[in-house]
Structures are given as structure tokens and as C-alpha cells.
Simulated assay, not measured.
Amino acid sequence: MRIVRFFKDGKQGYGLLANDADITVRTEDEGFGPASFVEALAGGEAGLANFAVALQAGPSIPLDSVDLATPVPLTGKLICIGANFGKHAAEAESVFTPGKHATFFLRVADGVVSPGAPLIKPKLSNAFDYEGELAVIIGTAGRHISVENALDHVAGYSIFQDGSIRDYQLEAPQWTLGKNFHATASLGPAFISADELPAGAKGLRLQTRLNGELVQDASLSDMLVDVVAAITTLSSVMTLEPGDVIAMGTPAGVGFFRKPQLFMKDGDLCEVEIERIGVLRNRVIDEA
């Protein structure tokens, strides 16, 4: 199933993609707000199936008649993995030394915008870099999840653009500031249930384009820490809960390590595409 969250006429709701152009919808005044989707995620496959059946019973409207929101409401955790593709880790070796454990960090909801919404290049920096990533959406909660059961806790997938302010990221002992500027990341366009994709999304192709130019191109099979390993590692530290998002890291080709460097600026169009998931598009504007 393919599900979107949207705003229309001052209301939000959820829609089930019937095809590439139409969605069947239910709105928050019918009980289909963000909390209802998180509840469906918590219910596992049966919860999602029931949610989809209810959406299917709603009226059909054109997809382009709504404003898309992030598929999940970002009321839970947003956990990211750094340097998780071998070639990207290699290009970053001058500024990053891997440790015994994988590099995880958190992003806050204030830094994430919806599909189609503008990414904001901050006043404080010109080093606004793109990062296309797979987003893993957690369904049923778990702690100390085994390798064998890890994918049972994945409700589905989406796309994340982990926009990074490189000088603030790399000129500090840890990455929090550079990874959390207001409205520098995005998530969407849709939630794709796990049963529609290969296990762990392995083998799918990720591409990032800036103004139509291909700048990143890799297989998700190239991730050093795959979805199973990310879930087992994180759940050994914290409880993973319905609606949590794990952003799985970006491949080589980021702007900081290009010669000359390539950063996003006002008017640019950033597109992240993952096959069988979709395309996440956002324009860049200068901070007012």
C-alpha cells in the first residue's frame, strides 16, 4: 500500500494512492489524523491493512489537489546514520574517522519540511549540502530486537533528504548544529508498506539530482549498516516505537567533497529518487 498525509481546505488527512494521479481520502474530522496513522503502525500488518481499507472507502480526489505533508507526523524519534556507504565514508576520510560503533545522531522535527515545501538555506552559511537517503518507518515497538525479527518491526519506507550545513557540522566535535538548522531536511512523498519492496529495501537504486544533474547514484545494497543491523543496534540502546524514522545514510557524491564544491542555493531544485518508492522534490529558498 502507498499512503500519503495531506492538507486541503484547512484540514489534514490521509489518502491511499489508487494510481499515480488519484487518492481515496479520509480527513481528521472523521478520525483520520496523525495519531490514527501512528496507531495503525503500532498494529502491525493488520493495523495497516485496516487503515488502508478505511481510506479506500473514502472519496477519490486528484493527488495534485492536495498539499502533501510528511507521511508520519514526526512526533517520535528521527534517528540518522552517518557515513553508511563505503564510497561516501572513503570520500569523507579527511574529516571523519569511524569508531568502533556506527555513527548515529538525532534530528529534530523543526528541521524537516514536507514534500514540495521549500528547503531554507540559512543566513549563517553558504555550505548547504544535499544528502539523499532511505527512510525506514517503524511499526510495532520493540527493545532488544533480534536479527531474525528485525524486519517484522518495519512498517514501511519513504525518502529522506538530510540537508546538512557543512561548516557547522564539521567545525564542531559533534554534528548536532550542522544537522538541525530549521527547514533544511525533507521527508516523503509517501509511505510505502514493507510488503511492496524487497526485504530491507536491498538492491533498490537511490539517485539524487540537483537542478536535473545526477549527483548521487548508488544501490541500497551498498549500505555498511543495513536495515536489520540498524534496528538491532538501536533497539539494544533504546525502545523503537511506532512512527519512529531511521534515515539510513547517504552515498558518495555530496557537494562538500566535489571539486569544485557544490552547495545548494536559492532557486535550486533538489530531487531524491528511490526506485519503487518515488521522488522527493524540494526547491531551495534563502532565509528571509
Rank of each mutant, 00 (worst) to 15 (best):
I61A: 02
L68M: 05
T70P: 13
P71L: 02
R107V: 08
V72Y: 04
S94F: 13
S94W: 11
G99V: 00
A102S: 02
T75H: 09
L106P: 04
G58V: 04
L55R: 09
K87L: 15
V95Q: 01
V72K: 03
H101K: 15
T75G: 13
G76E: 09
F85R: 06
A102C: 02
F96E: 02
G86S: 13
G76T: 10
R107I: 04
P98L: 03
P59V: 14
V66G: 06
A69D: 10
V66L: 10
P98W: 08
P59K: 15
I79L: 10
P98S: 08
I61G: 02
L68K: 05
L63Y: 03
N84I: 00
G86R: 12
L68V: 05
S60Q: 14
P73E: 01
H88N: 14
F104K: 07
A69I: 07
P71M: 07
F105H: 00
S60H: 13
A54E: 12
L78P: 08
A90G: 09
L78H: 10
E91K: 07
I61Q: 00
D64A: 11
V95E: 07
I81C: 05
S65C: 07
G82M: 08
R107F: 08
A57W: 12
L106S: 01
I79P: 02
L74A: 05
L78Q: 11
T75V: 11
T75S: 13
F104W: 14
D67K: 15
T97A: 13
L68R: 06
K77S: 13
G76Q: 12
G58E: 00
E91W: 07
E91S: 06
L63V: 06
G99H: 02
F96R: 02
T75F: 04
A89Q: 15
I61E: 00
H88R: 15
E91D: 06
V66K: 09
P62C: 11
S94V: 12
V72F: 00
Q56F: 12
L106W: 00
V95W: 06
R107N: 09
T103M: 14
L74E: 05
A89E: 15
L63Q: 06
A57F: 12
A69H: 08
A69R: 11
I79H: 03
H88F: 14
D67S: 15
A89I: 12
I81W: 00
A89N: 12
H101P: 05
V66T: 03
K87A: 15
H101A: 14
